[in-house]
Amino acid sequence: MLKAYWRDFVRFIPLLIELTARDFKLKYRRSFLGIVWSMLNPLLIMIVITSMFSILLKSPPSDMPFAVYYITGSTLFSFFSEATSSSMTSVIMNASLIKKVYIPKYIFALEKCAFSFINMLLSSIAMLMVVAFYVIQGNICPHITMFLIFIPLFFTFIFTVGIGLILSALTVFFRDIMHIWNVITTIWMYATPIMYPVELLRNHGLEWVIKLNPMFYFVDDFRNLMINGIVPDMSHFLLSFIICSVVLSGGLLLFKKVQDRFILHI
């Protein structure tokens, strides 16, 4: 049974690659700077936010420069929000295909996550540039632990795929989700310490928000490995692992359960 699923998946890996390539081609077709925008965009947003906050806030969120603090968190979170919103509509968008050819339908949600992930890897270059800038300035020093960032990245990816599968399946039946998800990701972003220090929530007695927010663990581990040179303790990784397994298997099961009815609703 599982073997059959695996064979089906392997057979459609070329499709996964082709669809991802299509998204890239269409995203940057006829643009002068092309793929450079994937790096330039987060950099420009960072500059805007940093200048805004340096006017509004007198104290930086931690001992690291705000620009570094912000861009490490936002790189990860933008991936999450971009990937979930695009995989949410992926099944509906490919209705014409689903109605005419047999394709394992989760491919579409997975493809959107993969596309956003590659996009994030490109925008990580912007993040590395900012980090390098502050290293040269002497504000922060580089740590060998930054080579471990693939661990929180991997967890974020799995978590995102799980959420993406759930959203794409439910959106077929309830289009309302398309409208509300944007609001939810905004709330979610403010519930994750990206622009403000973790202490801010602690001081307001809102620590439970962090504890319930899987994205916090990923972002925090990511930052610690990238900038602070701290390897999170195993319990953090274990917790991330459990969260990811639960969300991914939940997503897969839900998707599998309802996918045969997609065609009647798209």
Binding site: R11, F12, P14, I17, L19, R22, L26, S96, L97, K100
Partner: peptide, 27 residues
């Protein structure tokens, strides 16, 4: 399946790109 011709095409792409895409759609 020749149920509807061109189901897997993305009309924004060129024919060359679509041939590869459609091939992948068919597995």
């Amino acid at each position: 399946p020749l149920i509807e011709l061109g189901a897997g095409f993305d009309l924004e792409l060129t024919a060359r790109e679509n041939i590869y895409l459609n091939g992948a759609v068919l597995g």
